[in-house]
Nucleic acid binder design. Structure first.
Length: 569
DNA sequence: GCATCAATTTCCAATTGGTA
DNA sequence: TACCAATTGGAAATTGATGC
């Protein structure tokens, strides 16, 4: 919900910046229209309200279109839009233009993480089909439009109770409906989503399908979003899906669909359009072409302000582009305030409070890290869709003499990994008085859930939870280095505070990639074998080990910094 | 994609303050 | 005293950052 900037019960919030007495800065003050009305009736212009550089940059065409004149000069193909193109076009005209005119753009090739999301979606889609007995799949090549439409008609005429990938064309737009279900009074259109709830963008998705299906002469009497149901608990998968009727909401959107389709087709007939960058670059989905439209944000740009989120767009639009030029009265998150000070000083800030915070870390220490798998369709007892289940851990544990020993375990088959993992982890942490994890709520949550599923594991889990401490606030609440670029994630912090200990040298360098590889190793069809499997397991071990070693070195660095900060400045 | 936690914002009702 | 606007404070909802 977007803030209107006006509170209930009065209009005076509209004139806040010009009140005669000082008022505390509120975030929304930065976002109101650049021109306000003072209580005395005079117009005021807020500072920095001239055309923002943000807008000027947005016009920064890179001439990419020129390279594709050849594509554009081809004779017009009649069928230009599809369901996914339509929704892309709703997000941004440039995104749609590039998708159509430059389909082989490297930005459009899914990276490992996006591919994993798509794969998960395909598995969910296949499971959804099993919920429609007797359904017929239109199993033809993706781009065989005419044959698919013909096959769909044949299936409808042949009395199929449900048709998967039911294909239709109208208004130069092709859609393939996930499931079209025969009903007494017509047909029910079902859109399958691997999300756990209906989202607003799903409604547009359904709307364009209803428009095209009805435009093909097929009566659509209801429409549903069929999404994954988090309440479902393995082994009972009978309620894996929830089905939500959405036709009333969709009917409200439908009148606008033909105009949007026409506008998109007209836009595609022209040159690359100009669109200002903004929030739509990130919502509802991060645009793969950000690299073409966005400048390289300087270290002091408000885009890099910690905890700023989408407000950065409004700040920039109102002329506030530099963090150190934000008004002094603007209250920031304490870490963002420290970031602003560090940028103004041009150096790292270490608060004297760091030493106090480090006193909590009573040795011997252990540092732990998990890698998890979160299948949309649960596979182990007591699990719900997307529950993260630990399948690998790394632990650096301090011996009595202060030396570090590394412990590690990685699942190797489809058995539930939790009992074995927790037994080994409890062993590894036996001598530790403090157990550190970076962003410990994640590890703690995963452990607590395992104890719920396996009551026998309660005691070892509780013993770990009693000693666990989060390393993340040690950095966020006490240290800022301009090299952090507004992030306190381990991947942002470690290369700055522990130079030389990054992730660049590792074949697997990121948690989501690790998760995807573990899933492939355990459930792949076929799973990797032989040398490939050994290499994969080695890469996973090295990644997880780097995370815990990183926290070990990080704590050492923090102790050195704290000792320096405690002395005379 | 999802979950969690903490921070922030919004909402709503109660209270306070000013004016007629 | 009645009324309205402004302020306050707590609850609920949303957002942002982090993890996978």
């Amino acid at each position: 919900m977007k803030s209107t900037g006006v509170r209930r019960g009065g209009t005076s919030a509209e004139v806040g910046c010009a009140l005669s007495r000082p008022v505390p800065w509120r975030w929304k003050d930065a976002f109101r229209r650049p021109v306000g009305i003072r209580r005395d009736g005079r117009r005021v212009v807020r500072p920095g309200s001239a055309t923002g550089e943000c807008d000027r940059r947005a016009h920064g065409d890179r001439g990419a279109a020129d390279a594709y004149d050849g594509v554009r000069s081809h004779p017009e193909r009649r069928m230009r839009l599809s369901k996914s193109r339509f929704t892309a076009g709703l997000q941004c005209a440039r995104l749609l233009w590039w998708r159509v005119h430059e389909p082989d753009a490297p930005e459009l090739a899914p990276d490992e993480t996006r591919q994993a999301v798509f794969d998960q979606g395909h598995r969910v889609g296949a499971a959804a089909r099993a919920r429609f007995p007797g359904g017929v799949l239109i199993d033809l090549p993706h781009d065989a439009f005419e044959q698919r439409v013909t096959a769909t008609r044949a299936a409808m005429d042949g009395g199929a109770p449900a048709i998967f990938e039911a294909s239709f064309v109208a208004d130069d737009t092709f859609v393939a409906v996930d499931a079209l279900e025969r009903r007494p009074g017509g047909w029910r259109l079902v859109e399958v989503k691997s999300s756990t709830r209906v989202k607003t963008q799903h409604l547009q998705d359904v709307a364009v399908q209803v428009h095209v299906v009805r435009g093909s002469g097929v009566p659509v009497e209801s429409a549903e979003v069929m999404h994954v149901n988090r309440a479902c608990t393995y082994p009972d998968l009978s309620d894996l899906f929830a089905r939500v009727p959405v036709l009333p909401e969709v009917e409200r959107i439908l009148p606008g669909v033909p105009g949007r389709l026409r506008a998109q087709l007209a836009m595609l007939g022209g040159d690359l359009p100009t669109v200002a960058i903004g929030l739509h670059c990130e919502e509802p989905y991060p645009c793969p072409f950000q690299g073409r439209c966005w400048p390289e944000w300087p270290a002091d740009h408000v885009r890099r302000l910690y905890f700023v989120g989408k407000r950065s767009w409004e700040l920039a639009a109102n002329g506030y582009t530099s963090i150190d030029r934000l008004p002094d009265g603007m209250t920031l998150h304490p870490a963002a305030e420290r970031q602003r000070r560090a940028l103004r000083l041009g150096r790292r800030i270490v608060e004297p409070t760091l030493a106090v915070a480090l006193e909590r870390l009573v040795g011997p220490l252990a540092v732990i890290d998990f890698e998890t798998v979160s299948p949309a369709i649960p596979v182990w007892d007591g699990c719900h869709p997307y529950d993260p289940v630990p399948a690998q851990f790394s632990c650096h544990a301090q011996e009595a003499d202060g030396a570090w020993t590394h412990h590690h375990w990685l699942a190797n088959d489809t058995a539930d990994p939790r009992p074995e993992l927790i037994r080994r982890l409890a062993d590894a942490c036996r001598g530790a008085r403090t157990i550190l994890a970076y962003y410990a709520p994640f590890e703690a949550g995963v452990l607590a859930q395992a104890a719920l599923a396996f009551p026998k594991l309660h005691d070892p889990v509780q013993s770990i939870l009693d000693r666990i401490v989060d390393a993340h606030p040690l950095v966020r609440d006490h240290v800022y280095d301009p090299g952090f670029n507004g992030s306190f994630s381990l991947k942002a912090v470690l290369p700055v505070l522990v130079p030389g200990l990054g992730y660049d040298d590792l074949p697997i360098a990121e948690g989501q990639a690790a998760s995807r590889h573990i899933e492939r190793m355990l459930f792949g069809d076929p799973p990797p074998h032989g040398a490939e499997r050994r290499a994969l397991r080695d890469a996973l071990r090295r990644y997880c080990e780097r995370d815990t070693l990183g926290v070990v070195r990080l704590v050492e660095t923090l102790r050195t910094l704290a000792a320096g900060a405690a002395g005379p400045v």
